[in-house]
Amino acid sequence: MGVEQAYIDLLDSNLELRIKLTKEETITIRNKEKIRKLTNDLERCELYIKYLEKNLISRENEIDRLKAEYYSTLYNLKKCQDHLELKEEALVAQDN
């Protein structure tokens, strides 16, 4: 009877180990799915970052262009103001 009990205990132990293995396999499958999802999310985020970098560079180029245009306009405005002052001085001198 001791051998039969040992065999039954072995079968019970085997069943418990199979149940644990099944649970661990299920957890492993879930974790692999989570890893796959996170990997996909990471790839999408990296692509979005690259898009934003290109967009930022484009905006920086536009800002540089607008700055150059601003300084050119400012320079032309200053020239016009100087020219206007000279004309006003000439008109005042002409009136005198």
Rank of each mutant, 00 (worst) to 15 (best):
4 E>Y: 07
5 Q>E: 13
5 Q>H: 11
5 Q>G: 08
6 A>W: 00
7 Y>I: 09
8 I>R: 14
9 D>Q: 13
9 D>A: 14
9 D>G: 10
11 L>M: 06
12 D>N: 13
12 D>M: 11
12 D>L: 12
13 S>Q: 05
13 S>P: 01
13 S>R: 07
13 S>E: 07
15 L>N: 05
19 I>D: 12
19 I>R: 15
21 L>S: 13
22 T>R: 15
22 T>N: 11
23 K>R: 12
24 E>T: 09
24 E>W: 00
25 E>S: 07
26 T>P: 03
26 T>G: 14
26 T>K: 12
27 I>T: 07
28 T>C: 13
29 I>H: 09
32 K>D: 13
33 E>K: 13
33 E>P: 00
33 E>H: 05
34 K>D: 11
34 K>V: 10
35 I>R: 04
36 R>Q: 13
38 L>S: 11
38 L>N: 14
39 T>A: 11
41 D>R: 02
41 D>V: 02
42 L>W: 01
42 L>V: 08
42 L>Q: 08
43 E>F: 07
43 E>Q: 13
44 R>S: 08
44 R>W: 00
44 R>Y: 00
45 C>G: 04
45 C>A: 09
45 C>H: 08
48 Y>N: 10
49 I>F: 02
50 K>E: 13
51 Y>K: 09
51 Y>G: 00
52 L>D: 03
52 L>Q: 03
52 L>V: 02
52 L>A: 00
52 L>S: 01
54 K>F: 10
55 N>H: 10
56 L>D: 04
56 L>C: 12
57 I>D: 12
58 S>D: 08
58 S>Y: 03
58 S>M: 02
59 R>E: 14
59 R>N: 08
61 N>S: 09
63 I>V: 13
65 R>L: 15
66 L>K: 01
68 A>T: 15
69 E>H: 02
69 E>Y: 00
69 E>F: 01
71 Y>I: 06
72 S>F: 00
72 S>I: 08
77 L>N: 08
80 C>S: 14
85 E>L: 11
85 E>V: 12
87 K>T: 05
87 K>C: 08
88 E>S: 04
89 E>L: 14
91 L>G: 02
93 A>H: 00
93 A>G: 09
93 A>N: 10
93 A>R: 05
93 A>V: 06
95 D>E: 12
